[in-house]
């Protein structure tokens, strides 16, 4: 088996490295594609918020739509840009617990002054 004089690697090694490099490059390109799609989606959703604002919907309907759009955006950023989908599920649960605490505080405090 011919040996690479620079690295000492055999031809088989070089071939495997080439395959490995190609695979890494494929993974990287594929992730760039994913990131780009997510970025475009985020820009569209941000624009949609203002678009719905201009439609003059009722307050409740508008708040509902905004909440949905914001939630989708947050999920996209956290899931793909922060790689939460690749992390152990326990990290997601920890962040959801934190979010739950905020919602608990806001909802309970908000309710406490209704009809008071």
């Amino acid at each position: 088996m011919p040996e690479n004089p620079q690295t000492g690697a055999t031809g088989d090694d070089t071939h495997e490295e080439a395959i490995s490099d190609a695979h890494t490059e494929y993974v990287i390109m594929s992730s760039i594609r994913t990131y780009t799609v997510v970025y475009i989606l985020l820009m569209v959703l941000a624009t949609a918020k203002v678009g719905f604002h201009g439609l003059g919907l009722g307050n409740t309907a508008f708040i509902g739509i905004i909440l949905v759009l914001a939630t989708v955006k947050i999920l996209l950023i956290a899931g793909y840009f922060q790689h939460l989908i690749e992390e152990p599920r326990s990290i997601t649960y920890m962040m959801l617990t934190s979010l739950f605490m905020v919602l608990l505080l806001v909802a309970a405090a908000g309710y406490s002054i209704q009809g008071a």
Partner: peptide, 29 residues
């Protein structure tokens, strides 16, 4: 367990962010 499969510093950053969620959440709240 239950936080295997993530590097230690990154886990620390996530914990910090969980705390920051409350700080911002309280201000927004």
């Amino acid at each position: 367990w239950p936080f295997e499969g993530i590097d230690t510093t990154k886990f620390g950053v996530w914990v910090f962010l969980a705390s920051d969620v409350i700080v911002f959440g309280a201000a927004i709240g």
